Simulated scan of single mutants.
Amino acid sequence: MQGDTRAQEPVTVRTFTQLFSSTPRGARLARRLVANRMDAWGFAYDGQASESVVLVGAELAANAVRHGSVRGRSFRVRLVWGGGVVRVEVADGRTERRPVLREPDGEGGRGLVIVAALAERWGVEPRAGMAYKVVWAELRVGVGG
C-alpha cells in the first residue's frame, strides 16, 4: 500500500494579544474581548466552545489581577487558535507566585479547578530572565466556528 498522496490542508493559526490594567476592571474587559474575539473567529457567543474559552480566560485574568499583580504593570492576554485548539495565555508580573490547583474553600480557590475541568492541558511557564510568567490552558474547540 502506497502513502497518502492527498494534499495536506494548511493549518491557519490566528492570534489575538492585548494588554490590560491589573485591576478588576481590566479583568472584566479581558473577558469581554476574549468573547468578542471568539465571535470574530466564528464561534457564537452562546456556543459551548466560546463559553468555555471565555470562562477559562476570565478565570486566568482574575487570577492575574488577584495574585499576579505588580504595581504599575499590566497583564497580557494572548489567544492562539489553530488545528482545532485555542490556547489561552495570561502573563503577569509576579514570577515568584505560581498557581497551584487545590481544593476550593469557602473564600475561593475554584478558578483553577474550573480551568482544569475545561482545558485539555494547562500549566505555568516561568520566563527565565524575564519579569513575568505565563499561565496557559488549551481547549479543543473544533476546526470551524
Rank of each mutant, 00 (worst) to 15 (best):
A128Q: 06
R102P: 08
V86K: 13
F43E: 06
L60C: 09
V115D: 13
R66P: 04
P24C: 01
M1A: 15
A35L: 09
D46S: 12
L29V: 04
E103I: 09
A35I: 05
G144K: 08
F16C: 06
E107D: 11
P99F: 05
G57M: 03
F20T: 02
Q2P: 08
A64C: 05
F43V: 07
G145H: 00
R32V: 08
I114F: 08
E89D: 15
G93V: 04
Q48S: 09
R97T: 08
G68P: 03
L101V: 15
G144S: 14
E9T: 12
V141E: 07
N63K: 12
S50V: 01
R66M: 12
F75T: 08
L60K: 09
W81Q: 04
T15L: 06
P104G: 12
G72F: 01
R66N: 11
R32L: 11
V85W: 13
L33S: 13
Q18W: 10
F75N: 11
V86I: 10
L19P: 14
K133H: 00
G108P: 11
L79C: 11
P24F: 00
R31G: 15
S22N: 13
A61S: 10
A131E: 14
E125T: 10
T5C: 10
Y132K: 11
P10C: 02
L19H: 15
V143L: 07
L118F: 03
L33F: 14
G72I: 02
L19Q: 15
T12Y: 05
L19A: 15
G84E: 03
T95W: 08
G42Y: 09
R121L: 06
T12K: 08
D105E: 11
T95P: 10
F20E: 05
R127W: 01
R66E: 13
D92M: 04
E103Y: 02
E59M: 10
E125R: 10
V135R: 03
S74R: 07
T95C: 14
M130Q: 15
E125V: 04
R94G: 04
L139P: 05
V11M: 09
R71V: 05
G42K: 07
L29Q: 14
E103G: 05
V85M: 11
R121I: 02
F43A: 12
T15Y: 04
R31D: 13
